[in-house]
Design a protein around this nucleic acid. Sequence first.
DNA 1: AGAATCACG
DNA 2: ACGTACGTGATTCTT
Length: 890
Amino acid sequence: MLRETNSLKKLLLIDGNSVAFRAFYALYKQLDKFKSPEGLHTNAIFTFKNMLDVLLKNIQPTHMLVAFDAGKITFRNKMYADYKGGRDKTPNELSEQLPIIKELLAYLGIKSYELSNYEADDILGTMAKMGTDLGFEVTIVTGDRDLTQLAGEHVTVMVTKKGVNDLEIYTPKHMQEVYGVTPKQFIDVKALMGDASDNYPGVEKVGAKTASKLINQYGSVENLYEKIDQIKASKIKEYLIRDKNNAILGKKLATIDCTSPVDLKIDDVKLQAQQLTQLRSFYERLGFKKFLSELPDVEEIDNKVQDECHYEILDKDNLSEIFATDFDHISFNLEMIGDNYHLAQYAGFSVKIKQKIYVCDDVTLLQETPLKKILEDKNIAKQVFDLKRNYVGLQRLGITLFNVTDDIMLASYIADSENNAGDLGVLANSYQEFYVQSDEIIYGKGKKQHSVDVDTLYAHMATKVDVLDKLKAKIMPELQQHEQLHLYKNIEIPIAVILAKMEIAGIKVQATTLVKMKNDLDVRITDLKNKIYQLAGEKFNINSPKQLGVILFEKLKLTPAKKTKTGYSTSVDVLEKLEYQSPIVADILDYRQISKIQSTYINGLLDYIQADGKIHTRFLQTLTTTGRLSSVEPNLQNIPVKLEEGKQIRKAFVPCKQDSYLFSCDYSQVELRVLAHVSHEKNMLEAFKEGYDIHAHTAMKIFGLSNLDEVTPLMRRHAKAVNFGIVYGISDYGLAKNLGISRQEAQNFINNYFEQYPQIKDYMKAAVKLAREKGYAETIMHRRRLLPDIHNKNFNIRSFAERTAINSPIQGSAADIIKIAMIKMQSELERRKLKTKMILQIHDELLFDVPSEELDLIRTLVPEIMQQAAQLDVPLIADANWGHNWYEVK
DNA sequence: AGAATCACG
DNA sequence: ACGTACGTGATTCTT
């Protein structure tokens, strides 16, 4: 299997300059023998490539970066002008090879990087830190021993000994043995002894031995000087005192900056596919016969690619002829530019029938026979990538897509829910099919979008329909083996069509209502602003947490409760604690609340109202790792409901027709019911079977009461938080923070909880154990979440995976259940030919647009179907509400 | 582009 | 002892 697992995430970092330097001198004697036909020296390039091959084979990294020095001047020269002064200039024979090495790296799919003002060391240090933070095993290869200071539990430093393939491996243990100091202390040793090659002096008469001894004894340069009086009078002591500044400077110079402004993300250094065609001509250019012979037969591959993607251009004249033959399935792709397929511009389409590929840039051809007929034919199976996108795009052309049997996007998501690539090219590449390009490469992204010539478009569309068969062949056996065919065929594929219909139906939003609110809020915002400025004694940007922090905690001298990475935290929970200290706090909280409503929910939503008076969101079906949906442009799954002021927004959401209803039905406590089901917890099963208020019941249990009547509202609130915490994979800290109680109190709640619901504790343990054994967590419908991090050595990363192992089956099974309900519901609406439309899903709630004459039926039908969606060991309960706008739906 | 904040389940 | 709740998206400021 090609998928990488986290436990195998390996980051290889190479100090480009120092290794190239070594490579150059390793074959210095052969300098004149290594010349390209054009007369260019190639000895360093050749050796570099050899070394790469050995490293790639031995280390098998998943991610890799080669860092180069950007120039001679770095921030270290500001501290010490002569830094690296007196060094011989890099020989021209070498420096001319450096750009060629970078070119080679690009063709090999290896990222190279440099940063002005910083040395390669600093880039490597920064990347090594990023890698270890993300749970990578990091290997650094360099010719420079300075890098050994980075060695650690997950960082191995390899230093070239002789030539380039004889490497000395530095681990903290090894360093202790060789130098008698830790990797970090290596800097201190160097600071004392100085560095001839970097041209800084250190302390006179102190060499490697003395320096190591001193550091071993005192731990660090700083501590040494703090305790300098304890050293008995000696020549060394005199020199230490005299050259103190040298030592301090040396330490600064030797310390690698692990926070340099490297603008790379980990994905940017992922190993990419080799560009075989470019490599071939590159090796030819440099006369590298050895590497040329090792290259797979490029000519054959190139021909094969062209063969596979040979396509014919469709037009009105050849149309009928082409589709005259018999076929029962096709691959199809409707090409649109941009993410939002409700509005996107059409680029064309491609079809694959019986191994032949046809492309066309005129989508109106789809509207004519025979293409329309084929797409709407319930007996012809279609294979696509992103069914919902194709469905909506075709619907806009008046074509209803039927009988889609495969959606490779959905298949890949089910195979691995982190495979959320909405791009076929990206997915194909991850399955080693490199002839398909990503849309980003073809069309550009953001502001860099560009138009493409028609041949590029044709080729791109051709590869897209062509690769579907190959990907299907790779993914389907996996789904079958994992018992996920039902989830794929009977849940995700039908849901895609249903979501398409929901998105197309849309929800009506009254702009006038929003605009009215906007005007009211504008006044209130202005008032609050003025009040805040007055209390602060100056004008500032209230939206800037930084400026607000200065006002609150410096000018007004309120007590800061929490810090963020960049300064004071000013979040709600902090401000609420400060409320009694100054009246300004309450005004800021009000301002925050109202400007959120204004910007996100009034201005934001107004932008999305289309000409039909409706908002058509997009549900992302393959984004979440748990199986939930998400909603974008706009997000209609987070419309305010908890606070009255925000809830007003819902008054603008109305049914399509005046006397129709918005009808909502939501599951009561699905996640806790799922928890009761999967854990078989006796006490919780009973509570649900008896129809108790579950949070009150929990309160009674954990507070040791004998009667539900004794539960106070505060007890219930606490119990509710514990119930939620359990679902999230509880910790005393998290619970304490959530409830604003002490950690000890939180721990007591948790202990009581597990005493009262012992099988829930067993479930949590078993969930983690299962994930450890199998490497994944699973829902009731066999939806998987892969959890390679469950074995990670890093406590934080591992703990997160453990909580995920507990949470994913619960959240994911709840997602499965509502998806099943949606399928049953939609088929019932269609079977009964009702006008009622399902329009939104909000995780545990379905929203419908219901004509008044259907309300009575819907009132019984929807809860009934939702409750029957799954047979759990507890009843499922769904509560219905309705009104003439969303606010009235209570 | 990332961090902080806050809206939802 | 470790540092912490699970899953999302949009807006704003800042770098």
